[in-house]
Amino acid sequence: MTWQQPVLIPADVETPDKIIGSFTARQVLILAGTGAILYAAYAAVGDHVPLLVCAAVALPVTVGAILLAIGRHDGIPLDRYVLAALRHQRSPKHLVSSFEDIPMPPAWMAANTQRPPAPLKLPARGVAGDGLVDLGPDGVAAVAEVSTVSFALRTPDEQDALAAVFGRWLNSLSGPAQILVRAERVDLSETIATLQDNARQLPHPALASAALEHAAFLGELSARHDLLRRQVLLIIREPSVGAHGRDAAAARALRRLDEASRVLGSCGLTARLLDARAVAALLASCFDPSAPPLPDDDIALPGEVITTGGTW
C-alpha cells in the first residue's frame, strides 16, 4: 500500500514568478532600467549641474517608476494600463466595416484635419449556414448552449463525481475551448400576451382569473425590475490550414463538440449546437447587450435577400 501526499495547486496559475524578493521580472526591469538611465544622466551632466538640481529632477522620475512598477488599477499593472491608454489615444476612433485599407482623401480635402476612418477588423467574418463562425485566417468556431446543474444541492459524493467528469473533459481537450457565462435580458411580453389570449379559452372562470392575475404579476415584475437570465456557452475553435482547411476545421470542431456533449452528458449537462440564426442573434446581442433581443424574423443570414413588407 502506497501513501500519496496531496499537492496544493495555486488558484491563479498565471501569477508571474518572483525573481528578487516580491518583485517580478517586469518590476525589476522597470526599476533597474530607470536607475540605469538616471545614473547615466548624472554621469553625463553631474559635473556641470548642481547636485540639488539633479536630485530635484530625479525624484519625480523615481517616484513615477516606482508607481509604474508596483501600482495597479482595477487589477491591471499600472504600466500595462498606461500603455493601453496611450495605444487607445493614438488609435483611430472612426472605424468602418471594411476588409481593405481605407484610401487617403483627395488633395482638395487636405484642409480637413480630421483623421480619416480606419477599417474595423472584427475577429468574426460571418456565420455560415451550418452555424459555425468564420474567423478568417484563425479558423472556425462552433458555439453550443450548455444547460446547468445545481452543484450546491448535490451530496459530497455527487459533487466529487461532477468534478471528476468535468476534469476528465478538461484533460481530453485537444484544442482551444472557451466557457462563456453571460447574462441577457428576458422579454416577457410574448408570454404575457399568450397568457391573456389563453385565459379567454379556459373552461372555468377561476382558471381564467388566475391566468390573468399571473399575467398582471409578470407585467408588474418586468416593469419594476430588469429581468435577466444566465446563459452558458461552450465555444470550440479549430484553425484552418490549406486550401480546404475550412471544411476540415469545421469537421474537427463539430467532432470535438460532439465529444464534449457526450462527456458532459454523464453529469446531467446537455450541449445544444446553435444554428445560424441563433449565432447571428448572439453576435448581435454582444454588440449591444442592453438592447432587447431581436425576433428571428428580423435576423437575415449571410446571402439572404432583405425585403420589406408593404404595397407597391
Rank of each mutant, 00 (worst) to 15 (best):
V82T: 07
T34P: 01
D79P: 00
V7H: 08
V63K: 03
T2L: 10
I37R: 13
T15C: 14
H48A: 15
V63Q: 10
G33Q: 09
D74E: 15
H48R: 14
L51F: 03
I19S: 10
T34V: 07
L83G: 01
A56T: 10
T15A: 15
A41Q: 06
L59N: 05
V82N: 01
A56Y: 05
W3Y: 08
P60H: 14
L59C: 12
L38P: 02
Y42A: 09
P6E: 12
G75M: 05
I19K: 11
P50M: 09
H48N: 11
P60A: 13
I19E: 11
Q27G: 03
I30N: 04
D79A: 14
L29H: 00
V61T: 14
T62M: 12
V49W: 09
W3C: 10
M1F: 06
G71N: 05
P6D: 08
V57D: 05
T62N: 02
I9D: 04
A69L: 05
D17I: 07
A44R: 11
I9F: 10
G35T: 06
F23S: 10
D12K: 13
L67Q: 11
I9T: 14
G64Y: 05
W3D: 11
V49D: 15
G35W: 03
D74Q: 10
R26M: 11
D12I: 01
C54F: 00
I70P: 01
V53N: 05
G71R: 03
F23W: 07
R72N: 13
A84Q: 10
L29K: 00
M1Y: 08
E14V: 00
E14M: 11
D74K: 06
G21R: 10
A41D: 02
A58M: 13
L59W: 14
A55N: 11
I66W: 08
V45T: 14
V61S: 12
H73E: 04
P77W: 03
A40I: 12
A69D: 06
G21D: 04
D17K: 04
L52P: 01
L31C: 03
V61H: 03
I9A: 13
P60C: 07
D79E: 13
T34N: 13
T2Q: 09
I76V: 14
M1C: 04
S22M: 03
H73S: 12
G46M: 05
Q4Y: 08
M1A: 12
T24A: 06
A44L: 15
V63Y: 03
L51C: 02
I76Y: 02
L38I: 09
G46E: 09
V49F: 09
A65I: 07
V53I: 15
S22Q: 13
W3I: 15
R72A: 09
D12R: 15
P50Q: 06
V82H: 02
R72V: 08
A84E: 08
L67T: 14
D79F: 11
F23Q: 03
D17F: 12
V7N: 02
R72P: 02
A36K: 14
L38M: 12
V28R: 11
L38H: 06
V28D: 02
S22R: 14
G71Y: 04
G46K: 13
I76A: 06
L78K: 02
K18G: 07
I30M: 15
L86G: 01
L31M: 13
G35V: 01
P6Y: 04
R72T: 12
P6G: 07
I9Q: 09
Y81F: 05
D17V: 15
L8K: 04
T24H: 03
V82K: 00
A65P: 00
I76W: 01
